[in-house]
Structures are given as C-alpha cells and as structure tokens.
Nucleic acid binder design. Sequence first.
DNA 1: CGTCTAATTGAGATGAATCAACAATCGTGG
DNA 2: CCACGATTGTTGATTCATCTCAATTAGACG
Lengths: 256, 256
Amino acid sequence: MNSSKSVAKPLLEEGAVPQSEEAWSECADCPLRDYRFCAAYTRTMPNAAPRLPRLAKDVVPRQNLYRAKEPIRQVALVREGMAFRYVLLPDGNRQILSFCLPGDFLIPSVTVRDTVHFSVQALTPMRLCVFDKEAFRAHVAEDRHAMMSMAEICIGEKENCEARIVDLGRRGSEERVARFILDLMSEMQRRDPVKHASISFPMRQQHIADALGLTQVHVSRVLGRFRKEGLISLAGGTLAIIDAPNLQNLAGGQRD
Amino acid sequence: MNSSKSVAKPLLEEGAVPQSEEAWSECADCPLRDYRFCAAYTRTMPNAAPRLPRLAKDVVPRQNLYRAKEPIRQVALVREGMAFRYVLLPDGNRQILSFCLPGDFLIPSVTVRDTVHFSVQALTPMRLCVFDKEAFRAHVAEDRHAMMSMAEICIGEKENCEARIVDLGRRGSEERVARFILDLMSEMQRRDPVKHASISFPMRQQHIADALGLTQVHVSRVLGRFRKEGLISLAGGTLAIIDAPNLQNLAGGQRD
DNA sequence: CGTCTAATTGAGATGAATCAACAATCGTGG
DNA sequence: CCACGATTGTTGATTCATCTCAATTAGACG
C-alpha cells in the first residue's frame, strides 16, 4: 500500500545554531503573522526580540516528518504547504486523521506529550518554522498568550475530531466528500481572507479516501458525479466550487 | 428517535450557597481521590481547605445535563455513574462521541469554551461534583497542577477521538464492538485498580450502535455471536469478559 | 516517447442497513 | 404478587451502499 521507505530525520540537526536574527525578520512579511500562535508569537514585535528562537526548514512531498511513537524532537509549525497526520494499521490500511495547513502545528500536543500515536507526512513541498522543544515548552509555560493560544488550538483540534467522528459514523459518502471540500475551503479562507475562486488542492483521491473511510475508487465516482452535476471543478491540483448552494445541500447543511 | 423532552435545568441553582465544608470532607473517602483532576484538587488536603468550593448534585437517568450550543453554566465532574456526549443530526440520527465515566468532566473544554456543539445526557443515576465556572477557571489559571491536569485531560480526550476515528474509518463491526468492550473495561480498571471479573455495563445496544456508527439490530447480532462463541457474558447491565485473548484477536490487537 | 502514477469505468461480491415480526425484560400500579 | 404496557433485544428476509477486482485511460515527467 502506501510505502514510502524514507527514514525520518530530525528536522533540526543536533547542535544547529538557531538563526534567530534571520528567522525573526521573516515573520514581518509572513501572511500568517496574525494567525493563532503566530499572533501570540509576534505580539511584541517589532520592539522586542522574540523570546523563542526559530529556525526555517524546507521539506519535500512524501517526506516523513514524524513517525508514530518515536520521541518528538522539535516543535514544527507550517509556514507553507500541507501535511497530513495518519495512522497505519497492521493490515496495511491507512487512516488519515487530519491535514496540517499553513499556521498549524504538525503536532500540537507536543506541548504536553513526548510521543504521539500517529505519523506525519508532507503532502506538498513545505516550509516549516521549527522551535526547540524545551525552549518552546518553557515559553508556553511563562507566556500567558502563548499558553492560551495552545489551549485554543488543542481544543479546536478536538472539535475537528468530533466533527469527523460524526461524519464517519453517520453520513454517506457523498455527504462526507462534500463536507470535506467545504471544510477545506473554509479553513483555507480563514487563513487567507482574500477571497479566491479556487484553492490549491494537492491531495490525491487516495488521501481523501483514507481520510473519509472510503475507497479511492469510490471517491473517484463521487467526485465524478459532482463534476458531472456542475458542483465543482477539480483538475491539476486546483479546486473550485461552482455551485456552492447545491454542494451545501449535499453536505447536509452547515457544520454548526 | 431519541426524544427526551425534559428541559435542561442549571445543575447549580442561582444563588445556591456552595456547601464547602460538607463537600470538602467528602473527598477524603472518595475512591477517585487520586485520579486526574481530583488528585490535583485534593493535593493540599487535609491541611488546607480547597481553594475551589464544590457542590454535590444528583441526577437521574436520561436527564439532559447540557444541550448543544447553550451557554455552559457550571463545571461538572462525575463522581458516580455514567453519561454520554452526543450530537443529534437534522435527520434525527444520533452520534455518540464518548462516554463520561467517574472522574471525568462532563465537558472538559469548559476551561476555554462557553459553548460546545454536543449535548450530554445521563445514562445511569449519577452523583456530580459541581464547581462554579468562573471560580474554576480562576483556580485553573493560578494553580499549576490544576492547569497541567486540564491540559492532560483535554489531550487525552483528543487521543480518544483519534482512536475512534480509526475505528469508524477502517474497522468492521466485530472489530469495533470488541474494541469498545475492551476499551471500556480498561478505562474502568484504570479508575478502580481492584480487579473485578465483571463491570457495570449500563448502555443499551442503541447506545453502542450510536457510538460505533452501526445499527442497534446489527449490534445485537454481533453481541449474540460473541456470546455464542463464549467470548463475553452480558446480561442485566453486567459485562464479563470470558475469553480475553480471543476477544483481543477479534479487536485486531492492542490499542497501542 | 516511454514509463510511472493517478484516475476512470464496469461487473460482481459483501457487509451492514432496513423492514418486520416476535420474544424477553423491566417497571408500575392494582 | 400478578398483569399490563413500554422498552429492549432477537431473528429472518431482503435491499442497498460501498468494496473488490480488473481492465483501461489519462496525466506527469524525464
């Protein structure tokens, strides 16, 4: 099944010197400047230097960023690109738990945990902001804003999980796919409030299937139907919602 | 479908005087004394009075303890009995997200949220420990142990959600039911380390079905098979695991 | 171009849902 | 203590959504 044999390497090499000057200046132009943790992080800029050094790191699609149950070494935040969190079952099946979009931590629970039970893999080329784990925890422990931001993020993630449970437990395949598309669209819009007619949609049908508890073949059929009915257009990694109202209907109303 | 028409009343009446003396002394004999938040709460006992007043409250099966999207008024912790968290879909279907066992908060995210998207209903008669919401938040904000405890609890809940996503997305009905039973058993054991051959199992087949994304009819068949094969015994609200190894096999190995 | 991966399409199998009837259990009041 | 209605669980027959297997086409990329 999905076998990428690459070995996970630490994102931040041992003994690497955090390039805080360079990293620090980058935040100023970052479109995520005001989003969630980044807002807390850049709060005192440009007057004070950030208390927490940051390092940039680029990764390549299909690269394994973390393997389930290994000790987590650093804290990584997505600056550009997408990744996904997944668990591999003994029978070779894969369940994707969630996708990491720009502004997300790869593993938010690193705040409290040294290990998690899922793995993380890059879906596109990515640029990550990497923090030292202990420094990050110390920072969160003493900075009230950072702490609140992490609490907010973890609870938001739990709410997403719960929404997904409802999808998997009680909705049919068309409903699931429609909601998936709409959710992704609105998440992207929250991060970049400029309204785009279309968004980047780098996941393959296999990813959608593994996230929604379906088969790639079945996802193909559902997307085919959506296209045929003029609800969406999806090609070359770009998605556009053509008939939002009817897609909403198929999705069984708003999510909340 | 599941229509209990009772109106949710605040667990703690307006203006009620917290009976802190009485409540305080009760913790000493509570079997949950050393479990999670309770451990943090009773940490300074019996030398100092608890900083956070507590009130006992009893409720009755099927009673609605919280309705989705209403403002949360108090913080409630289960002392005895069970409840479940669920969402009701427009089509009348119900998805149970999780069960609240002794020692659990009904709504852990009350630490940060004033509202959540699921409802909570008592499954058995319950005894609850109720805190004032603002006092609780103030307490958590200033007590490092309480804070860590809440972080631990919220992240643990997220991990449970993720495990459930894997179940719903990628496992068949027998696997789901077997895991459900084993998980419940081990949760009960964590709370009461005394080894019992059987545990209280108050949920109806409809609850199991709504938790696992199945039908009550199908759950009946699966449980029937389990009984026939001598894996479990389940009657009169009491469950015993007879053949743990084979049940584990059906469940597709350990959960982690 | 040729090769590899991803997507489409069809035919048939299957696990779980649905529909329906019935049996067992529980709680309650007489 | 029994009789009753209400709730819960069991079982069979049938249907349906989704999976599986398999063959084919379309894209991506050197």
